[in-house]
Design a protein around this nucleic acid. Structure first.
Lengths: 339, 339
DNA sequence: CGGATAAATACAATCGATTGTATTATTTTA
DNA sequence: TAAAATAATACAATCGATTGTATTTATCCG
């Protein structure tokens, strides 16, 4: 049942030609005459030949593979980015090695090592929440492997970036709450090592200041922004003598957790507390009440990041001074914040 | 900036030993003395050596990589399966090549070819909606590459399977509608080539029959079950002289589309029409009204399928008569079906 | 028809690591 | 201390495809 693998040598032997001729025939080189090519193709088919990409890649010292590192595959935003990446890279004939860091630094480090070892032609990545040291990333650079960040990046590296303007988006979100009468606005924030959370934080602060509102230390609740974090943040708030009247959460996941918790506790949204999230996860639109949030076009971002990376791969070495593409995001106003 | 890649030969030259010794030192072979190993390790570190997995894999003729084919990465069920797969395979030291067929047969065929060519050690897959011919899958078999299906499989192949009991789940879902007073139950069905949709259909039929209800041809609406399909199915129903009083959809996506559409049209759920979906996508729990559905434990399925595959990889050839693992699924009753 | 050019193919090295076998160095033991 | 046994290392083939160079074969033209 399991025949030994068929190689170009088998085809060559069968046809009494050299394996180099077979190789060239298979790759449509003009150096073999059409008739020979035909014979080779036929024989290849007959023997059930499957090219061995490993051998080919080794020789050509490229893997035709792109590494993708995301915090979590099952987060909708990331899986849409991956879909976008797939769209582009598939057409370009690349394979995609997908890894998740689970937002753990050690894991991310190991993953990058593996990608390097697998000779990926380029890497697309959104850094983990714990990433502050970037030795593993300069490793990529040193080996001449192009890197493009999407969404979460790390300063200190001159790699390409595809992002949204987190500051602006956060500013708008916060201002939207203010316009809706909120005066005591809490911010659910994430690790400040991660650019996006710092930017969102800054946008929040800036919006308050521009509108003459005080920025209060205790109104910033920092966590990893999982659903449970949203819940426990709400529980914290319930201990306050007076509830805040608005919440700007740095992601939807925590915001959704919060909404559910508030609902359980009988707090009315948006009447008692108005809430705005970030990312426009699919759940947010069907939540009751529907969640106001920032739309982050994951699919688009994935496509653009891939295009940028492929460009970098095509022009090795002479990479232009690290581009940053900023994609438009927009505030999606839904009921959770209107009053 | 970009130094040539460091190989074991560089280390060997530096240390004036043979590359074979270096290789053995790096892989902890007892054939090199501890002191030499130490020297090698130190030198490897100094030179910034990165093993070339391509070369190693070629020589060992295995890739340490597992191929995963799903219809759509961004579908939550599948991304959770992938997360489960990742959990197991990561620990076992495997890489994962993830591909999406987009439910297109041609694409699936090409993907499998690529996986073969990349010498993957095994394949995990959920077949596309269009897959009825299975030549590409027997190719895998012929090359001795283990295959394990999850969720959607194809009879006609003696590969492992990790599934839920779709018949039983559908039976329960339908019976649940009947218990809630539905007498005219429509079924949103998918392509009948795909086992799961056939089974769900059969479960629906069986439940009707066991309960003395007539199975009506025109109550079966077959589509690809995307959100839009749910919408257009509803539009079809609106032309009926009398609306049905229950809908059992073979997936959540279509059910959710239907709920939204009904809401737009002012049809009350569950009062006018009770609805049950399938899969327990995250959106279903926050939908208004929350959707009754079948919970399909994707993460678990991913883990089990991986374990089964790794087992197959470990015992090449002597694969036991294709196992089928059936995971428990359960009906999650929510408001969309209670009356 | 014979030499020149072009076309087609063969030869051989290579990518980087692995591994069976041969050789050298070290230790044991009689 | 010399022979035997063992440890440590070196040699060389190999995985399968690619590619620069050399060689053979076919074509052209005066």
């Amino acid at each position: 049942m399991k025949k030994r693998k068929v190689t170009i040598h088998d085809i060559a032997r069968e046809l009494k030609v050299d394996s180099s001729t077979v190789s060239r025939a298979l790759s449509n080189s003009p150096r073999v005459k059409p008739k020979t090519r035909e014979l080779v193709l036929k024989m290849a088919d007959e023997l059930g030949y499957q090219p061995n990409a490993l051998a080919s890649n080794l020789r050509k010292s490229r893997s035709n593979t792109i590494g993708v590192v995301v915090p979590r595959i099952s987060r909708h935003f990331f899986s849409s980015v991956i879909a976008g990446i797939d769209e582009i890279t598939y057409q370009a004939g690349y394979n995609v090695l997908i890894c998740q860091s689970l937002d753990e630094f050690e894991r991310e480090k190991k993953l990058v090592k593996t990608l390097l070892s697998n000779q990926v032609d380029g890497v697309l990545m959104s850094v983990s929440m714990e990433t502050s040291d970037i030795g593993h990333l300069t490793d990529l650079e040193n080996n001449g492997i192009p890197l493009v960040f999407f969404d979460r990046f790390n300063d200190g590296l001159k790699a390409g970036r595809v992002v949204i303007d987190d500051f602006k988006a956060a500013y708008e979100a916060t201002e939207h709450l203010i316009e809706n009468g909120c005066r005591s606005i809490v911010h659910f924030s994430g690790p400040q090592d991660v650019n996006i959370y710092k930017d969102r934080f800054n946008g929040y602060v800036s919006a308050l200041q521009k509108n003459g509102l005080e920025v209060k230390e205790d109104h910033i609740l920092t966590s990893r922004l999982m659903g449970d974090d949203g819940v426990s943040c709400v529980d914290q708030l319930m201990d306050w003598p007076v509830l805040p009247d608005g919440i700007f959460s740095a992601n939807d996941t925590a915001a959704i957790g919060a909404v559910k918790r508030f609902r359980e506790l009988g707090v009315e949204i948006p009447k008692d507390v108005a809430i705005v999230g970030f990312s426009n996860e699919p759940v947010s639109s069907v939540l009751e009440p529907p969640l106001t949030t920032i739309d982050q076009p994951g699919f688009e971002m994935g496509k653009m990041a891939s295009n940028m990376l492929l460009e970098d791969i095509k022009n090795p070495g002479k990479r232009p001074p690290a581009q940053t593409i900023t994609i438009d995001s927009k505030l999606i106003v839904r009921k959770s914040s209107i009053r």
